[in-house]
Structure formats: C-alpha cells, structure tokens
Write a protein that binds this DNA or RNA. Structure first.
Length: 581
RNA sequence: GACCCCGUAGCUCAGCAGGAUAGAGCGCAGGAUUCCUAAUCCUGAGGCCAUGAGUUCGAAUCUCAUCGGGGUCACCA
C-alpha cells in the first residue's frame, strides 16, 4: 500500500466533488508528498495551488474548502492550510500501522506497482563489440541497464533484456584475420604478424576453438574460404567470454540479437530499406560537410539518405557507404523496426557517453519505423574515471590493455561494484575509487546499507537468545500490537518505510534507478538513528525482557525494515547479508 | 562552427515530474561505548544553487543568452 497514492486519489476526488469543473490536466499535476520539514505534517498537497488559476479562485480559499472536507476523514487527525496554499495533513496512527501490516502481508511484493500495466518494454544495454572481454568502460552501462530493467519489472512492465551483437563490422573481420594468423603460427607456420593485428591473448579463445574443431585442416585451404569458418569460432568464443564476464556481475540478457543476421540479400536491412522507400523516408542527395571541421577525406557525393530531419534529427543520415555496403545506422534502423514488429512499444537504450551524438538519430529511426507508435528513451551513461586513493588510476602500461570488468569485480566485489555505480545519476561523470569502495565504513554507502540489514538480523538473533520464550515466528510478528509503537522515532522510521512504493513509482517513471539506492541509504540512516536512541534511553531498545508485547511490536517494525531493504537491494542486484565479516 | 551532458557547502554528490527556512556523506570543531555489532550515533560551523535576463502566485528545478568543464560531429561501431 502506498499512502501517498491513496491520498492523491482522495484529494483528487474531493477536489472534483467540490469543483466539478476541474480538468484532468489539473488533477495530473496534483501531488501528495512528504513535506521537507516534518513540522509541517506527514503529507502535503499542492492541490489548491495547481487548481487556483484554472478555477479563477484564490488558492487559500480552495485549500480551506478541501481541508474542511478532510475533517471527517478517520485517517486524518489534523489538516492545515499553510503558506501560499499547501494543505498539510497529519495522519492517525492506524494508517501507519496499516503500512506495517501491509509490509508483512505483501513481503517481497511490498512496493511492487502496476504502473507498467503489463506492457512490454525492451531494455537494450551493454551491446559491446564482441572483440574482447568487457572492460571497465562497459561496466557502468551494464549495471545501469540491468538495474533499470529490474526496476521496470518491479513496476509492472513485461521486460525483455536485450544485447545487440555488433558482429558485422570490419573490426570483426580484422579479428578473424588475426586469429587465422595465430592459428597458422600455432601450427608451426612462420608468420609475420602485421602491426594492427589483435593480440594473441585476445584471439586465443577463438584460435583454440578453431583448432579443436578443424585440427590442422584449414592450413591447406585458401583464406577466403577459411575466414568465415574462423570468424564463427571467434564470435562464439568472444560471446562466451562476454557472457561469462557479465555473469560475474549477475547480469543475464534474455535476447542476444546478432547484427549479422540483418545483412545479406533479401534480409532485414534490404526489406527495411524497401519499406522506408515505399514510405518516402529515403532519397538520393548530397550532404553538407560539418561546419568548422571538414574531415580530411571528405568526398562530396550523392548518397542514399534517411529523412531523419523529418523526425527531429539535425541532419539526414546516410544509409549506404561509399563501398556500397550498409552503414551501421542502416542496420540499426532495421534492428529497431524488428523490435517494433516484435511488439515493443516501449524501448530503452543504454549507451555510453561516446554515443551521445547518436541519440537523436536513433529516436528519429524509432519514430519513423513505428509511425510514432513506439517511444524510445536513450539513457547515456557518462564516463567513469578509475581512482586509487584520490589519484587517477591507470593499469598496465606494458600492454596497453584496459582495466577489465573482471578486474573490477575481483578487486571490489559484485555488491560494491553494483551499488556504487548506481549511487550516482547516470548522466553525471563519476570517479570510482577502489580504496573507498572497498572500505567498510560509513563513507561507503554499500556497507552502510548492508550493515543496517545485518543489524536487523543480529537483533533477531539476540531476541531469541535473551527471550527464548518469545514466539518470533512470522505469524506472531504479523499479529503484534503495532499500536505500542508510539514514540516519535518509531513514527519516523515507519514514515520512511511508507515511502518505498512511491520511490519505486517515481524512479521507474523517470527511468532513474539511482533513486532506489539513495532511498535505501535513507532507510538505513533512519534505522541506525533509531538503534542509537536505545543507547540513551533503554526504553527505546528493541529488546525489552520485561515487555514481551512491546518487544514483539518492535521486532515486527525491524522486520519490516529488513523487508524493505531486501526488496530494494534485490532491485539493485546487491546481496543482503545477515552478518558482515 | 553545431549538437548533447554537467556546473548546488572546502571535497564527492542528492534535491523527489516549480512549492514552504536548499539536504547528506567526507573533511573540520566538539561529544556518546559497564547496555541489542562504536562497521554506529548526536551537536556545531560551512552555500549569491556558475552569471544575467525571462515565464508566474512561487524557480536550484522551465526558457533564452553568456562563462567554465566533459563528450560527440558523413563513409567507425
């Protein structure tokens, strides 16, 4: 149950009954939120202010009328009109205790919403070139996409997690050729390795794959015949490598979509271009070179262009390269048309900062292929700078290799990696300090939150030890007398828990999983704060051997904290340990 | 030259689809441990929300311009 959603509805209905002429537009802007200053009450609504202008009335007049109507609401103990026209509510105990009962009743589903209404959404993330292991630059997008997907699923969307394999380009060709050379070398031929070839370490997996499948039978056959065979082995090996890396972060995609399957005579790019032509979205024309910076090898030629400017892009985009093959974008149009035809009306793409220039053309493509029926949100993840003790940190000067995803996970662990990468807006650049992330102090939000969970578990362990006669089964906790939780500190903690469903809804609508991480930090802080109060005032301790009923009620509260932490950490893909080592 | 992102406390960042006196952590100054994990908590100092206009009852939030930082800019992916 979401008390905020409940009151949005009540306030809306009341407003409508008082002023039947209010428009839906006004109701859509009406919010009920926790006031910044708790002294203002439990809930606050802007209803009167958003309705004032359309109704041509004074906001305080509307607010007063609304407040009057709520005097009969049994869940409301006081209503006040404040400031320019805020309506501040103070809620009666029972509705807060109902929140606790709801947490116990719903368990893992407390906070789940149906705003997605079961609609399908495609979340595409990572989509790195299969030319090597995942490096640290991919990690942020991988974690962000995965967490966003989990959040959307928790919000009632039918989510498909998708990875687009860019396996059709020249880089793959190079990789296959390099691998073939390494294969010949490994089988005894003397080979001169060209300077731009991929390193032996990288091509090793593909080479071994080819060796084990073909033995030395490829040596005698011409390159043109053999390269496609090697390429298949290489791609398979690379994909396994990537999947294994992602698995280290507990990331698993539902669909791996190969770009190669779009290419070829009569395949999807062909048919998509035919379709685009039939829709008049393509023409032959010339492009102006970019102002201020004409590329060295600019060649002014007539080419096949997609009318991206009709769909909000800055310039029309080429579909065919000068050598006659398709551009990356042409394939991407076909790919996104494929997504649409598979039934996705909502699409989210997670891209790295270096692709920010690609966003408007991607949105244009989706708008075009769906005739405006599908929406596309592109989330850009900004760069991550690796740090160690406050100093920029670069690995391996010798080989020029990048820090890999596997390195990071091995160094700091899954939980810290995932939490820290989520504990920041995706569109802000961030520093990732190995030393800090590994530290187990309150500087580190991962451990701060996990510690809160561990503390909860510890309290239960102690309760069993100190009060062996107390029945702390779930059934007993559910039936606890929540009315005994009457101190301000308890009320504060319950209010924090009550915000969980609202947090999920808002984070989901905004496609901003970092809000979940920040919320969990707040819950942990409220809980740690309450815990410490037991130091000063023994009456506020969770375990009071003289008061079994109060102890049971407090344990039920603490159990509710645990549930919310577990639900939130679950979305983030971070574990909730029962004790910290 | 154009487009995208960012600019909030000394540092790192939040600020909830415009809302009341702008928040947290670190750092700094001070305090709490016979008692459920001090891996924690409490108190204090510290801000012209880059700058300037505009929109309105109200702007850190929306619009425009300027400055500063990052990213990108046919035929790479």
């Amino acid at each position: 149950m979401d008390v905020f959603a409940i009151f949005v509805e009540r306030v809306s209905n009341t407003l409508k009954s008082l002023y039947p002429e209010v428009s839906d537009d006004v109701l859509a802007r009406l919010v009920v939120e926790p006031p910044r200053d708790p002294a203002h009450g439990d809930l606050s609504s802007n209803a009167a202010m958003v309705a004032a202008k359309p109704l041509g009335k004074n906001p305080r007049e509307i607010a007063t009328a609304l407040a009057e109507a709520f005097k009969n609401d049994p869940d409301v103990t006081s209503v006040e009109v404040a400031g320019p026209g805020f309506i501040n509510f103070r809620l009666a105990g029972p509705i807060w205790f109902a929140v606790l009962r709801s947490i116990w009743a719903q368990g893992a589903d407390f906070g789940r919403t149906d705003i997605g209404k079961g609609e399908r959404v495609n979340v595409e993330y990572v989509s790195a070139n299969p030319t090597g292991p995942m490096h640290v630059g991919h990690t942020r997008g991988a974690v962000f996409g995965d967490t966003l997907a989990a959040l959307m699923a928790y919000s009632g969307y039918d989510v498909t997690r998708e990875y687009y394999i860019n396996d059709a380009g020249s880089q793959i060709e190079t990789l296959a050729r390099s691998t073939l050379l390494r294969y010949r070398e490994a089988l005894g031929e003397t080979i001169e390795i060209p300077p731009r070839a991929i390193s032996g370490r990288l091509s090793g997996a593909g080479r071994r794959g080819a060796e084990s499948e073909f033995g030395d039978s490829l040596l005698s056959r011409p390159d043109a015949e053999v390269i496609p065979l090697v390429k298949d082995r290489v791609l398979a090996a690379m994909l396994e490598l990537i999947k294994a890396d992602l698995a280290k972060l507990n990331i698993h995609h539902d669909v791996f979509f190969s770009e190669r399957t779009l290419h070829g005579q009569g395949k999807e790019i062909d048919s998509t271009l035919d379709w685009l032509r039939s829709e008049g979205m393509v023409y032959q024309g010339r492009l102006e070179p970019p102002k201020g910076k004409t590329p060295e090898d600019w060649e002014d030629r007539e080419q096949t262009l997609f009318r991206a400017t009709d769909y909000g892009d800055d310039v029309d985009r080429p579909l065919v390269k000068s050598d006659g093959s398709y551009t990356y974008f042409a394939a991407d149009i076909a790919y996104h048309r494929d997504k649409y035809l598979r039934g996705f009306k909502h699409m989210i793409n997670v891209l790295g900062a270096d692709h920010s220039g690609y966003v408007s053309r991607l949105k244009a493509a989706v708008k075009a292929v769906s005739h405006g029926q599908a929406d596309m949100d592109v989330k850009i993840c900004q760069l991550v700078r690796l740090m160690k003790n406050g100093e920029p940190f670069k690995m391996s000067k010798r080989s020029g290799d990048l820090v890999t995803l596997a390195d990071v996970v091995e160094e700091v662990g899954v939980d810290a990696t995932r939490f820290m990468l989520t504990y920041r807006r995706n569109d802000a650049a961030m520093d990732f300090d190995f030393a800090l992330v590994k530290e187990q102090t309150r500087d580190n939000p991962v451990f701060y939150v996990q510690y809160a969970h561990a503390r909860v578990c510890s309290i239960f362990r102690n309760a069993e030890k100190e009060m062996p006669g107390l029945d702390t089964s779930d059934a007993a906790l559910r039936g606890a007398e929540f009315e005994l939780l009457s101190s301000p500190a308890e009320a504060e903690l319950i209010r924090a828990l009550a915000q969980w469903p609202r947090t999920v809804t808002q984070a989901s609508l905004a496609h901003e999983p970092h809000r979940v991480a920040f919320y969990l930090y707040e819950v942990a802080a409220a809980f740690h704060g309450f815990w410490a109060k037991g130091k000063e005032d023994i009456g506020l301790r969770f375990i009071n051997t003289d008061h079994p009923k109060l102890t049971l009620a407090r344990l039920a509260l603490v159990g509710a904290v645990r549930q919310v932490l577990v639900n939130g950490l679950g979305i983030l893909g971070v574990s909730a340990p029962s004790e910290l080592s």
